[in-house]
Design a protein around this nucleic acid. Structure first.
Length: 488
RNA sequence: GCUUGCGUGGUGUAGUGGCCCAUCAUAAAGGAUUCUCAUUCCUUUGACCCGGGUUCAAAUCCCGGCGCGAGCACCA
């Protein structure tokens, strides 16, 4: 036998990163990320942006940012969110979306498709109550409206558009069949009425202009087709949406995009995240705003010093599986540590600082700012006041070393300087000079904000700089002069 | 209830019939380097939900069970 036949087939390469997209042609891939602008983006949204964005980049395709703002009552849009979300997209991906679509600008387009659907007989206007239809759905019986003529439905549809019905009195349904095995798919609702006089759309250019609004499954389905979306990647809670929409596509004679799903993600420390719930808690004053560091919003993470690259690495690592997962925040933090460690200037923050006389020490100290580049921008401090600040806890030790300065022995409440060079294994502590300032370190933990007071080493870094507080962890300088802890 | 999806170390993830006594990351423990309890490096611990079946061979296919999730809104 030929020896090559006995050889094991070549070892398959371990896949790293995202799997290939099915039927993806370079330059032709069109993806979309479609949030509801009822608030700024949160941690969970980042997944949609990162994954879709990464594929768009890999295939030199198009990333669409689509605002699915078709509800003015239950989840009304937040006017500022349209801008905020675009800025956050750019922050996270390092570039803006290739195309931006606002659903509320395109209501007429959806109306046209509804008209066509009704005229072609696969859509109808149903005047049954929601409760009544629920009963028809479980018993798999056709509602009285369904069998009426196309002309009748066209008339009803014109009636809907013309204000002949009040919200709740009529809805447009897609004829999928009441005998569908999956109850979720049975003649699903495509458009409904909203009282936009009482609840106007927050965008002034839309306001009370329309009363007939598409529901997500319809709006999204039509828009995906019109925009030429080739691949949809979304949560598996939308699996039935795919099935509903596929039935609609069959009616229209369209081909449904390739679809992938991911499961639910929970963060140990946060639990789930709901934009509406956060909005309530902010309005009630429980949180300071959308960027309150306790909140799982992108703006809060950014404010806290989390780098977009860390967020990208985090979501890319989770990849796309349909498992429901729960991840610890430490996983995100370890990515962030890698992102900021070499560039974060070292600074001393002395908690519960005590001021102690120091005798016999040099007049000046020089400390390393960046361990990776020991000569870059060294920290020089004047010690001629003869005092240093150290942490209360460290002050209880009889002998220790002031980092980068000198060995000391404590006699009563005075520190006596000894060897300049390190002589023994005594513990090393961080410290600061009299020129330091009182400072506050803010910590977000367990849905609480804690403040630790101390002395911060003199520096001239601007707000927004991510620093590493020696022996404590990474923090960011806030506009008000306080420090916000990012993570250890 | 109907429908639908998922189950690999503590946490994530790779793996689509032999490369797997299972990959990588993270966490934990130990150690080295380091004038930070950081970074970097090394080592160790640790997993295929259960039961059958198909096959020479199963984490991978089939059946059953168990567990967890989602949809069945005139929300997204």
């Amino acid at each position: 036998m030929a020896p090559e036949l006995l050889e094991a087939r070549p070892k398959a390469e371990r896949r790293v990163g995202l799997p290939d997209l099915e039927d993806a042609v370079e330059g032709k891939v069109v993806l979309r990320f479609a949030p509801n602008p009822n608030g700024p983006l949160s941690f969970g949204h980042a997944r949609g942006l990162v994954i879709n964005g990464a594929y768009a980049e890999r295939y030199k395709g198009t990333l669409i940012l689509r605002f699915d703002d078709t509800d003015t009552v239950v989840k009304p849009p937040m006017p500022e969110a349209y801008d905020t979300i675009q800025q956050e997209t750019e922050w996270l991906l390092g570039r803006p979306a290739d195309r931006v679509i606002i659903a509320s600008d395109r209501i007429d387009v959806y109306h046209e498709h509804a008209t066509s659907m009704i005229e072609q007989g696969f859509g109808y206007v149903c005047t049954c109550s929601a409760e009544a239809f629920r009963e028809f759905r479980v018993t798999q019986t056709e509602c009285p409206c369904r069998g009426k003529s196309t002309d009748e439905h066209t008339t009803r549809w014109q009636g809907m558009l013309g204000g002949a019905y009040k919200p709740g009195e009529a809805v447009v349904r897609v004829k999928t069949g009441m005998d569908q095995r999956n109850p979720a798919l049975r003649d699903w609702p495509a458009l409904r009425l909203q009282d936009t006089v009482t609840n106007p759309h927050p965008r002034p250019e839309v306001g009370s202009k329309h009363q007939v609004w598409p529901l997500l499954d319809f709006q999204s389905a039509i828009e995906d087709h019109l925009q030429g979306v080739t691949h949809i990647i979304r949560g598996k809670d939308l699996m039935d949406s795919t099935r509903k929409q596929t039935l609609l596509y069959e009616h229209f004679g369209w081909t449904y995009p390739n679809t992938m799903y991911w499961g639910r993600v929970k963060v140990h420390e946060w639990g789930g995240f709901s934009t509406s719930a956060m909005r309530k808690d902010i309005e009630s004053g429980r949180y300071e705003g959308w960027s309150d560091p306790r909140l799982p919003t992108l703006s809060a993470l950014a404010r806290r010093g989390i780098q977009p690259s860390a967020l990208r690495a985090f979501w890319l690592e989770l990849a796309i599986t349909q498992k429901d997962i729960s991840v610890p925040l430490s996983s995100l933090f370890s990515h962030n540590t890698k992102a900021v460690d070499s560039t974060a200037p070292r600074l001393a923050f002395v908690r519960d600082a005590v001021r102690m006389p120091l005798t016999g020490a040099p007049d000046e100290a020089t400390l390393v700012r960046y361990p990776d580049q020991p000569d870059k921008d060294p920290r020089r401090h004047d010690l001629t006041t003869g005092h240093v600040w150290i942490e209360e806890e460290d002050a209880s030790m009889a002998s220790f070393r002031l980092k980068d300065l000198v060995d000391v022995d404590r006699h009563e409440d005075t520190l006596i300087a000894g060897a300049i060079e390190r002589q023994d294994q005594r513990p090393i502590v961080h410290w600061t000079v009299d020129a330091s300032k009182d400072a506050t370190l803010v910590l977000a933990e367990d849905d609480m904000l804690h403040e630790i007071s101390g002395r911060l080493e003199p520096h001239d870094f601007p707000a927004g700089t991510v620093v590493q507080l020696e022996r404590i962890g990474y923090a960011i300088l806030l506009e008000d002069g306080r420090l916000l802890m990012a993570h250890e």
